[in-house]
């Protein structure tokens, strides 16, 4: 950062790239969805740049950078609503037809908690919408979305583990 301030743009590019790696790894622990993570990361990088005058020369960069990143993350959550979990219906429902081809789907579902497995059976196998499925088993619409979302995330993890 010191070299960047002397006008070295290459050094500044390097600083920003390094900052983006560190902030991304911090955000990855707190933000689930990839697209959302990239949005917050980009906001953080722009904030680091526009508020770079608030970093005093000689002071450590880390606390300054993470304080801004944390502020932007909280601001992002506030804008979007309090839940740090993104319930993206389209993403959850938009599973490519051959994603689970050749796999023992029932076996996979058996590895999930029963509530999540049932939610996925209703929405992804029987083809009900989230609302129809929530009406059928008598739970709230949001609760159904949450079950499907968490179940799909877990299924993806299981499949990834098996492919390794």
């Amino acid at each position: 950062m010191a070299a960047s301030r002397e006008g070295d743009r290459k050094a500044y590019r390097q600083f920003l790239a390094e900052a983006s790696v560190r902030i991304r790894s911090m955000l990855a622990r707190k933000v689930g969805a990839y697209s959302e993570l990239e949005d917050v990361l980009q906001e953080c990088l722009i904030a680091l740049h526009t508020k770079r005058h608030t970093l005093d020369p000689g002071r450590p960069v880390g606390p300054w950078m993470y304080a801004i990143a944390n502020y932007k993350l909280i601001d992002h959550w506030r804008k979007r609503g309090r839940s740090p979990l993104v319930l993206d219906d389209d993403a959850d429902m938009d599973v490519a037809a051959d994603t689970f081809a050749g796999m023992d789907v029932e076996g996979l579902l058996g590895a999930l908690p029963e509530a999540q497995a049932e939610a996925i059976r209703l929405t992804h196998i029987e083809g009900l919408t989230n609302r129809e499925a929530s009406d059928r088993i008598g739970i709230g619409h949001s609760a159904m979305k949450l079950r499907v979302h968490r179940g799909m995330l877990r299924l993806k993890e299981i499949v990834d583990e098996q492919e390794r």
């Binding site: 960047s4 743009r9 290459k10 500044y12 983006s20 990239e38 740049h49 770079r52 005058h53």
Partner: peptide
């Protein structure tokens, strides 16, 4: 993200 990095870097670090 990479293009944002390039854009910001092109503006320089001098506050």
């Amino acid at each position: 993200t990479d293009s944002i990095l390039d854009e910001l870097a092109s503006q320089g670090a001098l506050p």
